[in-house]
């Protein structure tokens, strides 16, 4: 029973990790937060759903959602970030302006869907259950875990094995130095936002398939959990987001399984609060990450 819960938690955690990776990637580069990330996630589920309803095969819909969300995310960088970067209050400004983008996208989705809960048609994803060593795994769960692993590997290779990735990391480490050595920061910004949006889109499709309950508000709880993951892992840390996502997934399934229902959120967000007080730079962040004020 415990093993089954842990397994389910790992699968959900993988999707949390995907979502949070995109969130933390932008923070790592800009030191600004993109609160429209939840809306991009929701858009992923919407695009995939409407593509499937229009008769496209699931894999095409998946690709459409991923690419579409990447592009949407670039649009967010252009409309909500680019003007702020020069102002002195970018940190605050970004939060406000991406909240604005979040509301705007959500309201657009609400116009399309009404406030209804939408569902993928039956058997969009083949229902198949495997049993081994007493554990029960659905084909969909395997697909989710597989996608999460593949996408994370692709991202890691991209960031750490290609020149483009090196540029992204150099801007993240020291933007001015990177620009001086000839890196065009705009190209880097667009790439990070595309990657970030694509990851959000992918996790949106996976969650849409898994819970089959798609609504224009579905991004909000994910955004809130995204905070938990990236703070737990360390703001801006890529391995941190991966580990943080898995931990949150397991914590959530375990508390839901063994504690009175309804306490899950209280526990998760108390945990977030406590981590910020005790170790604001998270598991993998550096103490110099600027979470705390200088004080004597």
């Amino acid at each position: 029973m415990l093993a089954q819960q842990l397994l389910n938690g790992l699968v959900v955690g993988g999707v949390y990790a995907l979502f949070a990776l995109g969130f933390t990637l932008v923070f790592g580069i800009h030191h600004l937060m993109n609160l429209a990330h939840g809306a991009v996630f929701m858009t992923g589920a919407f695009v995939a759903l409407y593509s499937v309803l229009a008769g496209l095969p699931l894999w095409v819909s998946f690709v459409l959602a991923v690419v579409g969300c990447g592009l949407l995310s670039i649009l967010i960088e252009i409309t909500a970030f680019s003007r702020l970067r020069k102002s002195g209050e970018a940190e605050f400004g970004a939060i406000i302006s991406t909240l604005g983008a979040d509301l705007f996208i959500m309201s657009f989705a609400q116009k399309i869907s009404g406030s209804d809960i939408l569902r993928f048609p039956f058997e969009t994803f083949p229902v198949q259950i495997f049993q081994f060593m007493g554990l029960r795994v659905t084909l969909l769960q395997l697909f989710m875990a597989g996608s999460a692993v593949v996408l994370m590997l692709v991202l890691t290779c991209y960031l750490f094995r290609t020149t483009l990735g090196t540029r992204i990391r150099s801007v993240s480490a020291n933007e001015r130095a990177a620009v001086l050595s000839g890196v065009n920061p705009h190209v880097v910004y667009y790439q990070t936002f595309f990657l970030s949006g694509a990851l959000a889109g992918a996790s949106g499709v996976l969650i849409g398939l898994a819970f089959n309950s798609i609504q224009f508000t579905m991004g909000e709880p994910f955004l809130l959990r995204g905070f938990v993951v990236i703070v737990l892992g360390g703001m801006g840390s890529i391995p941190g987001a991966m580990v943080g996502g898995l931990l949150l997934g397991m914590l959530q399934t375990l508390t839901a399984a063994y504690l009175p229902s309804g306490l899950t959120d209280a526990i998760i967000f108390s945990l977030l609060f406590v981590i910020l007080l005790v170790r604001p730079y998270g598991l993998f962040g550096k103490e110099t990450a600027g979470a705390m004020r200088a004080q004597r």
Binding site: L224, F227, M235, F269, F273, L276, G290, A291
Partner: peptide
């Protein structure tokens, strides 16, 4: 002890709790 964004996230957590 916290600054900027971190204060925002901590108070957001408080609201959620």
């Amino acid at each position: 002890r916290l600054r900027g964004v971190f204060q925002a996230i901590a108070t957001l957590a408080f609201v959620q709790v």
